[in-house]
């Protein structure tokens, strides 16, 4: 599989449109049109797509704007807001209900600038055919059964068994992660990476965390912090 002509990169400002080098505008336009018509999951109605100024000529920008608008997608020419590395680290306390003490110290500083959506807490088992979707992080207090789907812009924390499909960082956040007491999903997706657990997987005995390391989804055991009453 070659490099995609049109790609979307997530940053703090939204979704950034990026093109493969040395591709003419016609191919770009055709590719976007095809994706829009196929109803690709990136180009949902109401999504806001950005492009850095100067990448395309103004005439070509107008062509794309019209194309996106026809499909209900917002299109803006804007300087990309590069995510500074620190706030990205600080998102984690928002996702982990029992953050480690060292991170708690940093968390208050992050709160005023946070424009990110709040964490969604689901207080039940998510069953086959049900889908939980949130632009922010998601915490499930219950199981995620096979046939269920969790899609989060941020990270996913499951206080129970995870047997369904989980997609963290669905808008491109490579630092997103998935934590579950028993992590045995049908499939794990983080940003644009997909991993499939081995067949005949044994029931894990400890909580595990999946995240991207060196471009691959890696699963490692973690210790849940017990909160003593």
């Amino acid at each position: 599989m070659g490099r995609e002509i049109v790609q979307l990169k997530g940053n703090r400002g939204g979704l950034q449109l990026v093109f493969a080098p040395n591709v003419d505008f016609e191919s770009i336009r055709d590719d976007i049109q095809r994706k829009l018509e196929e109803g690709s999951r990136f180009f949902r109605r109401g999504t806001e797509i950005q492009i850095a100024p100067g990448v395309l000529s103004e005439a070509n920008e107008a062509v794309l704007r019209k194309l996106f608008h026809q499909h209900g997608v917002l299109f803006r020419v804007e300087e990309p807001v590069e995510a500074p590395p620190r706030p990205k680290v600080e998102r984690k306390p928002a996702a982990a209900p029992a953050p480690q003490p060292t991170l708690i110290v940093e968390a208050p500083k992050a709160i005023p600038k946070m424009e990110e959506p709040q964490m969604l807490v689901v207080n039940r088992t998510v069953r086959s055919g049900q889908e939980i979707k949130s632009p922010g992080s998601v915490m499930i207090c219950g199981n995620v059964n096979a046939g269920a789907q969790i899609i989060a812009g941020g990270s996913i924390d499951i206080r129970g068994a995870c047997k369904g499909v989980v997609h963290a960082g669905a808008y491109g956040d490579m630092t997103a992660f998935v934590v579950a007491d028993q992590l045995m999903p049908t499939q794990i997706r983080i940003a644009d990476r997909i991993a499939q657990p081995p067949e005949n997987m044994k029931k894990p005995t400890v909580a595990e965390r999946a995240s991207i390391k060196d471009g691959k989804i890696v699963i490692e055991p973690i210790e849940r912090q017990e909160i003593k009453a």
């Binding site: 069953r127 049900q130 046939g147």
Partner: peptide, 12 residues
């Protein structure tokens, strides 16, 4: 069992 899970979700 999978389909039962689906229907239970709907009923709940």
């Amino acid at each position: 069992v999978r389909d039962a899970d689906r229907i239970i979700g709907k009923l709940q």
